[in-house]
Design a protein around this nucleic acid. Sequence first.
DNA 1: CAAACGTGGAA
DNA 2: TTTCCAAGTTT
Length: 374
Amino acid sequence: MPSESPRNRLAERLLDWYDRHARDLPWRVSPAARAAGTVADPYRVWLSEVMLQQTTVAAVKPFFERFVNKWPDVAALAAADEADVMGAWAGLGYYSRARNLHACAKTVADDFAGRFPGSAARLRDLPGIGDYTSAAIAAIAFDEAVPVVDGNVERVTTRLLAIETPLPKAKVAIRAALAAILPVGRPGDFAQAMMDLGATVCTPRKPACVLCPWRPDCRAASEGRQESFPVKPKKSAKPQRRGAAFVAVRPSDGAIWLRRRPPSGLLGGMSEPPSTGWSSRADGETGASAAPFPAAWQAMGTAAHGFTHFDLVLEVWCADVPDVPPGTQGRWVLPAELGGAALPTLMRKVVDAALTRRPSPSARGSGGAVPRSG
DNA sequence: CAAACGTGGAA
DNA sequence: TTTCCAAGTTT
């Protein structure tokens, strides 16, 4: 695919760089394999892209391996119980992704005969697939020549052209610029090359401009202002909230009483020990008197957790509870089953605090940390 | 359009 | 310790 036009030299230089420096990732077809005719599996591309939304490669890798081992294709995932999918996602965060992932799998399996739509426009209609993910799947799995704009691409492009417009308004200019650079030949590799460049060279802090194939063309670097892009709005301070969580332990077998959170909202659809609301007031619903049912509650210290938009400190209370608590919804979960019980990280901290700090279980055996799902 | 929505690692 | 933020989507 020769291209003599000057503007395409940018794409050619980036692709040459990618051919030599592409990261080796579990969901990726290497540029060499791709050149030899290997095609990407849309299922794996989709799964990885959803997992990678606002999430680091390092965090995603073990989850990706676990998912593809357990559910090798979209039909298998569609046939899974939603609770199992939520359980396997526990710890990855942004749990609406897991619910949308399952819904999307069912749509693809039921309405599209198990095959992902082959264009960005139609992928965009599926749950959990937005502007970025639809373009990424279309480019990587179907070689559609669409601009793929993620955080890496925003950074690389705003630096290349010294775009002063703050995000997210700058996205229009970024997309336009990218469309002009985009090669017709290797859109999938180009998209991944942009992201690799942003992740390994054109990093948020201390970019390695000396290693960059676009160094001679970069307006920000030529002015020594590479770390001034992209321009972003300031973030407001995170408020503090408090609450209390109550870990009921059944003495006979060490099972813990868990309930399911509402399907949408914070930690939607995930499991938890019963807890109070999380008040922004320092004197909010705390103390043993806030418990959902009476028991000999003992203080187990606190569990602290930082969410995107607020910090939380939860008091942890623990008690032996022999029978189903009256007037409550939930289920007993054995210690060995806690790993697959869809406990988000915050709740894992709560349960860990209770089980590790509570008085020695003497003759009944149980307790210990919550195992990771797997 | 702004806000909600998790987590863990790096500086 | 605190702040930033990583392959965004939904409402």
